[in-house]
């Protein structure tokens, strides 16, 4: 990083590093006069919650992306975790809805993600299998197990569990607190711990990482377990939010959204690059685009086309910015 230039300098740097902020602001300003309701508290809350959901997934994904890996299995982990948690709650009729059973269900869901994440990390790090295919295979078989187990039948969840999403603390929805804590934690891990440095080192190149004594295997396993854990947390939220344990909670498209958000926020698919603040900006952008387009109430196909166009615009801006700062 360059020398400290005070607050204004920081802001300038920030805006220069993340042109997507400009784009988000521009998009918001464009829509506000047409649809002032976008600033209503109700919509801002909807937007904040959409950001929170996508951010959880993008954070987990970015840990893997930083190590030059990729995790395509997130939707499948979410499906399996959702089904496991909901059927556990549905099965324990005497415990249904008690805080203990809810806690156990959540722990079980998190364990699903950790276990599958471990399997991925182990396969990539120790069996030297390509991450793309390992996690793509999981997208099929883990998701397949969730569908097979339920035969696509949806499972209701008790009222107590739903509070994980709908509960409020100091007037602010619980998930916003949870995700804020997770983001701060992720930022701390990436920028202030040995593990963070190791993640970046692995992403920069295995040879150099090996030479500098990074325990490559453990680092990669950590990244995939983090990603699995984040997918499980997202599964807890989705399940509570939709009142439903289901193997089809999300479309696989959410993958493109979360990887796209990370990449727009400056994370590289080739590893070694990515910061929480950038990822947050990317997530805000993707969520805002979705919100604005829905607000405008355009036809379905126009929504999809504009979404594509705006993502391209973000990338063009980024390319310009790089060229400009390179010329400077």
């Amino acid at each position: 990083m360059g020398p400290v230039r005070g607050n204004i300098g920081h802001i300038q740097l920030f805006l220069r590093d993340y042109p997507v902020v400009w784009l988000s602001l521009g998009l918001g300003l464009l829509v506000v006069p047409v649809r002032p309701e976008i600033l209503s508290p109700l919509n801002l809350e909807t937007l904040a919650l959409a950001i929170a959901l996508l951010l959880v997934l993008s954070l987990g994904q970015s840990f893997v992306l930083i190590t030059a890996g990729i995790d395509l299995s997130l939707p499948a982990i979410m499906s399996l975790a959702s089904v496991v948690g909901a059927s556990y709650l549905a099965g324990n009729s005497d415990l249904t809805g008690t805080p203990l059973s809810i806690l156990t269900a959540i722990v079980a869901m998190l364990l699903v993600g950790l276990a599958i994440g471990f399997l991925h990390g182990f396969s990539v790090a120790y069996l030297r299998m390509p991450a793309f295919l390992v996690t793509l295979a999981s997208l099929m078989w883990v998701g397949g197990i969730a569908v097979w187990y339920t035969e696509s039948v949806r499972i209701p969840v008790p009222e107590g569990f739903i509070q994980v999403w709908y509960g409020r603390l100091l007037g602010i929805p619980v998930p916003l607190w949870t995700v804020a804590i997770l983001a701060v934690l992720a930022h701390f891990i990436l920028s202030n711990t040995v593990m963070g440095r190791r993640l970046y080192a692995v992403g920069h190149g295995l040879q150099t990482a090996l030479v500098s004594g990074v325990p490559i295997g453990r680092t990669i396993v950590f990244a995939y377990m983090t990603s699995g854990l984040c997918a499980s947390i997202a599964a807890v939220f989705y399940t509570a939010r939709l009142h439903t344990g289901s193997p089809e909670l999300v479309e696989n498209e959410v993958l493109l959204d979360c990887i796209g958000a990370a990449v727009i926020g400056g994370t590289s698919l080739f590893g070694g690059k990515g910061k929480v603040i950038g990822i947050l900006m990317g997530v805000v952008f993707i969520a805002l685009v979705g919100n604005c387009l829905n607000m405008l109430g355009l036809r379905y196909w126009h929504v999809i086309m504009i979404k594509g166009g705006v993502i391209l615009l973000a990338a063009v801006l980024d390319a310009f910015q790089r060229r400009w700062s390179g010329a400077e």
Binding site: E248, L249, E251, N294
Partner: peptide, 30 residues
């Protein structure tokens, strides 16, 4: 096909202050 996105859309319709909603949902639970 995305139930979560549909819930977002319902919230947005409410925020826009519509007078009524007709919804064709993905399934009976969500």
């Amino acid at each position: 096909n995305d139930a979560n996105r549909q819930l977002d859309q319902i919230h947005i319709l409410i925020a826009r202050g519509v007078d009524g909603i007709i919804v064709s949902p993905k399934d009976s639970m969500t």
